[in-house]
Amino acid sequence: MSVGLEHFLVLGAVLFAIGIYLALTKRNAVAVLMGIELMFNAVNVTFVAFSRFVESASPLTGHVFVVFIITVAAAEAAVALALAVLVYRNRETINIDEINLLKW
């Protein structure tokens, strides 16, 4: 049995699902962020797999996309951590359940 496109897609889907699960259940905001990063990486796996297996006029596009995603995700993580610090200074918690001043 050789490893084909399907296997990579399933891997991507499983990673994406685990990411969702983490993002929606972890109480610590940083852990939620890790879940989101996992979702991004699931997307990266999918892109690279498609790039490798799908016939395309410009086969490198998928890889290029992945590089962009990694870069942007890093910038996003930086801002996220800064905001987490800000929230911690204000509230002395980054427990996402307790960050619910704004509601209704």
């Binding site: 905001a29 939620v32 991004f40 999918t46 498609f50 790039s51 996309f65 996003e76 996220a80 800000l86």
Partner: peptide, 28 residues
């Protein structure tokens, strides 16, 4: 303001990931 920022970012990032997954399929 900081709470709004963090919420916006986390949810925005989730939605970005979802968009990207859709884009990955379009690319595929």
């Amino acid at each position: 303001s900081s709470e709004a920022g963090l919420k916006y970012l986390l949810l925005g990032a989730i939605s970005s990931a979802v968009t990207l997954y859709g884009m990955a399929f379009l690319f595929g």
